[in-house]
Computed example of a mutant assay.
Amino acid sequence: MKKEKILSTLEEIKVISDPFRFKILVLFNRDSDALTVKQMSVKLNEVPSKVHYHVKELERIGILEIVETKEKGGIMEKYYLPTAEVFKIKKDIGIQDEPEYKQVSENIILTMHEDFTEAMNQKNNDGMRQLNYGMTYLTDEEAEKLGELIAEFMKDKNVRENTKPYMFGYALFRK
């Protein structure tokens, strides 16, 4: 698994912005083991055919990959994992002014908000939950610097001894 994958086309961004596909990816934050479509469908309380369709779309653009196959009762089970720890959208792909891009961006923000809200409402064994949001006033240069500081801090946070997985998101946009 790579550390990060940069999404650089509208097609990739559209595929990953689907709320249901985002939920599939979140499964891997909660369970770091490879999962079959059947296992994902049970965890998501959905029919396997729906999950299979969305997994295939994520696989098609290189977000998920098959890491193992096992024969079970004459059926080949395929086990999937994300191809990277972090997925980022390329800063400038020349489509930010297109209405379709704006809709996709809104979908991503709404999906992240729903997932974070759900996580905040769940009981957590160690009590570690934090969600901050608000308004701040920055120059364009300060906003860019903030993004760089966050990216720099997060870039080398791999699995290490005594670490636990935490889900994070970052959105900064002009009001």
Rank of each mutant, 00 (worst) to 15 (best):
G73A: 13
P82N: 11
K90I: 11
Q96F: 09
V55C: 04
G94E: 06
E65M: 14
K90H: 15
D31M: 05
G73Q: 12
Q39K: 03
K56I: 14
I109Y: 11
E106Y: 13
E57A: 15
V67E: 13
D92C: 03
A84H: 09
V42C: 00
L64V: 02
S32I: 12
M76K: 06
Q96P: 01
H54V: 00
E106R: 11
A84C: 06
K72N: 05
P99W: 07
V67N: 03
V42G: 00
G74S: 12
R30G: 13
G74C: 12
Y101V: 00
E85W: 12
N29M: 06
D97R: 06
I95C: 12
I89S: 03
K38Y: 13
K102I: 13
I93D: 15
N107H: 13
S105H: 08
E71C: 11
L58F: 11
Y80C: 01
L27C: 14
K38P: 00
L64G: 05
N107L: 13
A34K: 10
A84E: 15
K50F: 14
K90Y: 15
E68K: 08
E46T: 03
K102G: 04
K72T: 08
E106G: 02
E65K: 12
N107S: 11
A34I: 05
S41K: 04
Q96K: 12
E68Y: 13
L44K: 02
E68C: 02
E57C: 15
D33M: 03
K43M: 07
H52Q: 10
K91N: 12
L25M: 14
P48R: 01
N107W: 15
D92H: 08
G73Y: 07
E85D: 15
I109K: 10
